[in-house]
Design a protein around this nucleic acid. Structure first.
Lengths: 188, 188
DNA sequence: ACCTGAACACCGTTCAAGT
DNA sequence: ACCTGAACACCGTTCAAGT
């Protein structure tokens, strides 16, 4: 990449991070280019779609989440590990307001710039879920797609101002539903 | 209302129903006016906001849902009644794609045309929940706001094409979490 | 009373013209 | 190679002018 191109790329990313933090994932791309002091075509050259820009903004977050999953797989308590990862994954997906809808769309759109990241997020969740199921601490009738859908729904909920006060409590209700207490058998 | 005004109103509503069914709640209002063969100002005269139009489209659905709640309050099994209403309320809110976000926003916006309808929807759910709790078949640590948030999250989920295949199963998971089996005490 | 559509201030996306 | 910004086809919202 030529030096001037690289400079524009970095500048666009920095400005986009700021604008998207303020206005959400559906912020005006024109506005981003304007504030970056760059022509509109330059933005489209570096980020051909809105998803590509969002992916660049979220890349580090996705990577952190994947690495975190690896750590959590070493925990003794597979149930705690799963719930802890869920909580953090939900927090990650609403780093930027309005990011969850494009992520959900990307999971089935192989052409989307967000596709690979979302697939590996789902894969990380699946590993933690399967381990918890093997330990008998998570209900058996769920898979990684269910988990991805629940993360999405809870992240969306936390994005709606009127529902924010309920988000924590409902996370608790739902994670309780996922976890199964391993009951000691009653005295026979 | 003058006869011509009434005719325009009905025509707009009929066309809006069709367009919003096809394109979702964020359909182009210009398009609605155009297809109704009416000036854009006429649309804004009859429906000053998008919420006002949506409210007119959903009014009958809201009414049906409230009436249905009254019926269900007479059921013997308060838990079944609650879950049945939840399922129907969720189906109702995605009569039109994209309708759930404005509904959620309206619950705290007293100026919104959708406010009253959303408040009475929440009230209906609250009544069914309280009855189930009194019968000991619903968990005690939830209220009508939690229920409204769960309905919203599940309705949103059913609006995302990639998540649709999981919607029914997750409804079951979540409603199981709401209902509490009334356990017979173990032999003392 | 009610209707119309031009006017204004925005978008996203593309692409010829420049360096 | 890369950048620019005009051009095109859309929005939502308002409001003077018409009947």
């Amino acid at each position: 990449m030529r030096a001037d191109a690289k400079k524009n790329y970095e500048q666009l990313l920095a400005v986009a991070r700021h604008v998207v933090t303020e206005q959400g994932a559906d912020a005006s791309l024109r506005d981003v280019a304007r504030k970056a002091g760059v022509g509109l075509g330059t933005l489209y050259r570096h980020f051909p779609t809105r998803e590509a820009l969002l992916e660049a903004l979220l890349r580090t977050k996705f990577d952190e989440s994947a690495q975190r999953a690896s750590e959590l797989e070493t925990w003794d308590n597979a149930g705690n590990a799963l719930v802890t990862w869920l909580r953090e994954a939900i927090a990650m997906t609403h780093t930027y307001r309005g990011a969850i809808a494009p992520m959900v769309a990307a999971i089935v759109d192989e052409g989307s710039a967000l596709h690979a990241s979302c697939v590996s997020l789902r894969a990380a969740g699946t590993r933690l879920l399967v381990r918890a199921q093997a330990d008998g601490v998570a209900r058996g009738d769920m898979d990684g797609n269910d988990l991805f859908a629940l993360i999405s729904a809870l992240a969306w909920l936390a994005d709606q101002p009127p529902l924010v006060p309920r988000a924590d409590h409902l996370f608790h209700v739902i994670s309780s539903a996922i976890l199964t207490d391993r009951q000691e058998p009653a005295i026979p």
